[in-house]
Amino acid sequence: METAMAILTGLFFAVSIYLMLSRHIIRILLGVAILSNAVNLTIFTNGRITREVPPIIPEGKAFPVEAVANPLPQALVLTAIVIAFAFFAFLLVLVFRSYQELGTDDTDEMREAEPPNEPAPPLGY
């Protein structure tokens, strides 16, 4: 299971990085969305995998009675999913607004912050 997950995670990374290398911000956005899944899977798989037994202690017991899935990466990933979503939503709105402002989705044409042929900074004090 873990080996399969490792290979799948690699595929997630490859796809997300390929998308992020695009010049179009929508592709980059999709890449970021997939990247968050890739990272979550990495963390999750690193905590080792136990099939189908959630980390929940049965009623009336003080400890898990059988081998349960590792709760720690789950807790980490759970917040990561929500934060990644918040981040994704922010990026989406950013993309949306920059498209409205600049009328392009090509990163090569987005030169507001670093315009081409900027003059050299002044010398002196």
Binding site: P54, I56, E59, L78, T79, V82
Partner: peptide, 8 residues
């Protein structure tokens, strides 16, 4: 707190 679920 006791079953799957929570604030998120």
């Amino acid at each position: 707190h006791n079953e799957p679920g929570g604030g998120f």
